[in-house]
Design a protein around this nucleic acid. Structure first.
Length: 720
DNA sequence: CCCGAGGACCTTTTT
DNA sequence: GGTCCTCGGG
């Protein structure tokens, strides 16, 4: 009776399609969930429904997401729907879950119990170290390329021995890959891709373990399925048997991570592989007004490669979308701030505004305008907490103490704060380690045993670490960090630094992060807790609840806006070359992915949507004159109001173009940045002039014919 | 060892 | 244009 009520409660909150998805019986399912269609609600309701109706116990559920944030949100929402302890449930990110499997079966996975996780920057320095040891020329083989080579192969499930190098260059890269694999194995560390690959190999090679998990997980749920890589899909397949089902939720129109291995094709494959009878489409949008939604629909309709979906809403037309053509990026920023100030005066909170851009470099000018108007703001992205140098340094002490073979950690701190161990001593250590085939720590031990301990040098370092290890024995993680920060000299070092106070306070925050962590973990084995904490710092970006709830403007790239919503959204830099980005045009599926990006951006808006572009834009130290984004042309006229500087104010007229920097001081009739039409080439934009008074040539970037240099005297062009 | 000059880099990003 | 890295002199 009681259970019936609870069940009705959460089923009652669903529309027909959502309920259909949630209550599917005995089958795998593909749910095409449009933007704002209640995707998370469906996912969590599905879990609750399965448990409520005793189709599966909490332990028989595996739910996978991409970010820790999404995983956490899911757990919170499930526990609000059901009075159960979610601790026993397997909910997490792909990497987090792999980590969990590998810890549990570390012996079978051929990893030490305390194996540590390398983040991308750790990985990069590890690769650099490998290349140095092999005497590989960094000029010819940049470490970045090697890193890309290694990761893209791992992401395809290919080990170095499986690579078939077709030229000398790849052959060399693959030697680096092979050596890197050996180094990681020796040091007991795993990079992100390794977690997944190692886990897949574990399941593939060990049928006992595979069968065990296949029989446990009856229902596997996957969020953001369109973002899964082929390796992740393979992982999912290994976890399912004939008796288990996958419930995949995704939106092919929001697939914007192709560049990092996401494979939208997994959706079609999944339909086939799991014999999906009917794909459930969630097309009712609960977020945006009609004009915004129709704008999004019109844009995405230009993509050929779609599963097909059309969002609708019954929330009314709302305001027209507004397009603003600015003179420059500064003008664009000022326009945005003016609009925000106006709407804020009308009572909108600052945190209900999002300013979106295609790349991070665009944020500077906007930030400048915000700062000079004294408005609070927050920029997403950038350095995360656990990626900060001082945090990584502090953690490296912990890492080394818990895993002496971690050479990365060793090198990071052996001379930090400086203690008289220069490049020479380190080289010596590395030679010794190489000859004895040991870790740097063991090499350091050998040197220590033969030398007197002084105030500096390697023997001093060895004893410092030993001392720290003794000191923190039996202490909690937070107390340990506190001790280490103090006694390693880190704190003193940063206090001396002129802008080191921030770093010291970050280190203090690390102590509180450890306290928070301990509160969320069941305390059984304190030693393993330390290892788990270290993994947590690698797997979790650590943005924490930092400045959440603060009433501030939200600045972020379009990519990081996915999944969020705001009352008012500004999409900036809508120029061809920026959005769509010029580099995307040469990639296969590039333009369509950019269009999906535009679609994601538009669908973030609830009530008001502004699209802005600049006729001239200073980017990377150069002024560009771009033509308006082709996506703007895809918006039907009835939905949008197009404005430019003339309409905005009387001080900024077309005349102000005469103040723009010019290549020469010739008398020209059409200002740079102005749009023109040509009888043959169509629409374009004036980007410059060449030649003298008698032979003036105008340079125009045309939408469909590229850049042309035309004789001013004869060119049949008309300003628009 | 520290600092400053000079050079290369610059799409998107989570784990 | 800004940042990050490297290298060389003090």
């Amino acid at each position: 009776m009681n259970s019936q009520n609870t069940q009705n409660k959460f089923l009652g909150a669903l529309n027909e399609k959502q309920a259909e998805a949630v209550t599917l019986k005995n089958q795998s399912a593909l749910v095409l969930a449009g933007a704002g269609s209640g995707k998370t609600l469906v996912l969590t309701s599905r879990v609750s429904w399965l448990i409520q109706n005793q189709i599966v116990s909490p332990g028989g559920i595996l739910a996978v997401t991409f970010t820790n944030k999404a995983a956490k949100e899911m757990l919170v929402r499930i526990s609000s729907q059901l009075p159960i302890n979610t601790r026993g449930m397997w909910v997490g990110t792909f990497h987090g879950l792999c980590n969990r499997f590998l810890r549990k079966h570390h012996t079978d996975a051929n990893l030490p119990e305390t194996f540590q996780i390398l983040d991308s920057s750790d990985q990069k320095s590890a690769i650099k170290r490998v290349m140095k040891g092999m005497n590989v020329n960094e000029e010819m083989y940049p470490s970045k390329e090697a890193q890309y080579f290694i990761n893209s192969n791992k992401d395809k499930g290919i080990r170095s021995e499986g690579v078939k190098p077709h030229d000398e260059h790849t052959k060399k890269l693959n030697e680096v890959y092979a050596e890197y694999e050996r180094q990681c194995q020796r040091e007991g560390v795993a990079d992100f891709a390794e977690l997944l690959l190692r886990c897949i190999e574990l399941f593939t090679n060990n049928s006992v373990i595979r069968n065990h998990y296949q029989s446990i997980f009856k229902h596997i749920l996957v969020d953001e399925f369109q973002d899964t890589s082929s390796l992740q899909y393979q992982w999912l397949k290994l976890l399912t048997s004939k008796e288990s089902f996958i419930f995949a939720v995704g939106d092919d129109d929001q697939s914007i991570y192709g560049f990092r291995g996401a494979r939208v094709g997994n959706m079609k494959d999944f339909e086939k592989d799991y014999k999906i009878k009917n794909v459930v489409k969630l097309e009712q949008n609960y977020r945006s007004k009609n004009n915004i939604l129709n704008t999004a629909n019109a844009i995405i309709d230009n993509n050929k490669n779609r599963l097909g979906k059309n969002l609708f809403t019954d929330s009314g037309d709302g305001d027209l979308v507004r397009q603003y053509t600015a003179l420059s990026e500064v003008d664009e920023a000022n326009f945005i701030i003016d609009e925000i100030k106006m709407l804020h005066r009308e009572g909108l909170r600052y945190d209900q505004f999002a300013i979106l851009y295609r790349n991070n470099a665009q944020s500077r000018v906007i930030e400048h305008a915000i700062v000079s108007n004294n408005i609070p703001y927050r920029v997403y992205g950038g350095l995360r907490f656990f990626e900060r140098a001082e945090i990584k340094n502090g953690l490296a002490y912990l890492r080394l103490i818990s895993n002496k073979t971690d050479d990365n950690a060793f090198l990071r701190i052996v001379n930090f704060p400086t203690r008289g161990i220069g490049a020479r001593s380190i080289e010596q250590l590395q030679d010794l380690a190489k000859n004895n085939d040991t870790s740097l720590w063991d090499a350091a031990l050998e040197i220590e045993s033969k030398n007197e301990v002084t105030k500096k040098g390697i023997p001093f370092f060895v004893n410092l670490i030993r001392h720290l290890e003794d000191e923190i024995h039996g202490l909690s993680i937070s107390e340990s960090i506190d001790k280490i920060v103090e006694q390693s000299g880190l704190k003193a070092h940063y206090l001396k630094d002129k802008d080191g106070l921030d770093r010291v306070s970050n280190l203090n925050e690390l102590v509180s992060a450890a306290v928070t962590f301990l509160n969320t973990v069941e305390v059984d084995n304190p030693d393993l807790n330390l290892v788990e904490f270290l993994n947590y710092t690698s797997l979790e970006s650590g943005e924490l609840q930092a400045s959440a709830g603060e009433d501030a403007l939200q600045l972020m790239t379009i990519h990081s806006s996915k999944g969020l919503e705001f009352d008012v959204v500004f999409i900036t830099g809508l120029e061809d070359g920026l959005c769509p980005h010029e580099r995307s045009l040469t990639e296969s599926d590039g333009l369509e992915e950019e269009r999906r990006l535009m679609y994601v951006a538009v669908t973030r808006a609830k009530n008001k949507l502004y699209l802005s572009l600049a006729q001239s834009r200073m980017l990377y130290g150069q002024t560009q004159y771009n033509i308006p984004s082709r996506f703007l042309d895809e918006i039907p006229e009835g939905l949008i109001k197009r404005m430019n500087t003339v309409e905005k104010s009387t001080t900024n007229t077309w005349d102000s173009f005469s103040q723009l920097p010019t290549s020469s001081s010739i008398n020209r009739e059409i200002p740079i940045g102005r749009q023109v039409t040509h009888s043959k080439f169509g629409i374009g934009m004036v980007i410059g002039y060449e030649g003298g008074e008698n032979d003036l040539r105008i340079q125009i970037k045309f939408k469909s014919h590229g850049v042309k240099l035309l004789a001013m005297e004869y060119a049949k062009i008309e300003p628009i």
